[in-house]
């Protein structure tokens, strides 16, 4: 009886612990990757929105973040210089309210680990 107790099979214990831990570690790692993608997507959207509102979409490439760019007539955009010009024609230069903005949306690709996510950011330049 003593012999039987002493020799009860424990050889699989480490394996079970390892598997359990490996699963947990994997879960944690996936969480970290997911957090990283959220951070990455957020920064990507913020930076692209900022770039879009200041210089238009001319410098933005790729489909990771589409930028919807809006402006108003009082803040004409000069595509040649990639910048805004204050409205002047024939030495008539009014000081007018302005508002131009860009919205960037970063949507993760379908092969991301935790399904899809979408982060939308708006950047605004305005003066009333």
């Amino acid at each position: 009886m003593r012999t039987l107790l002493a020799t009860r099979r424990r050889s699989g214990q480490a394996a079970v612990e390892t598997m359990l831990l490996a699963f947990l570690v994997m879960l944690i790692l996936m969480s970290l990757v997911h957090l990283f993608t959220v951070t990455w997507a957020s920064e990507n959207a913020h930076i692209r929105a900022r770039e879009g509102v200041m210089h238009g979409t001319g410098y933005l490439v790729g489909d990771r973040a589409d930028v919807a760019y809006t402006t108003v007539i009082s803040a004409p955009f000069d595509s040649m210089t990639g910048n805004y010009t204050a409205l002047c024609q024939d030495y008539v230069c009014p000081i007018t309210p302005y508002r131009f903005s860009a919205i960037a949306t970063d949507t993760t690709p379908s092969h991301d680990l935790f399904g899809s996510q979408s982060i939308t950011v708006q950047a605004v330049i305005a003066g009333n």
Partner: peptide, 17 residues
């Protein structure tokens, strides 16, 4: 950045005026 840019843009308007 956007705040500084906006202020500079307003100044640009004033300078043009």
């Amino acid at each position: 950045d956007l705040g500084a840019y906006s202020a500079a843009y307003r100044e640009a308007q004033v300078m043009n005026r």
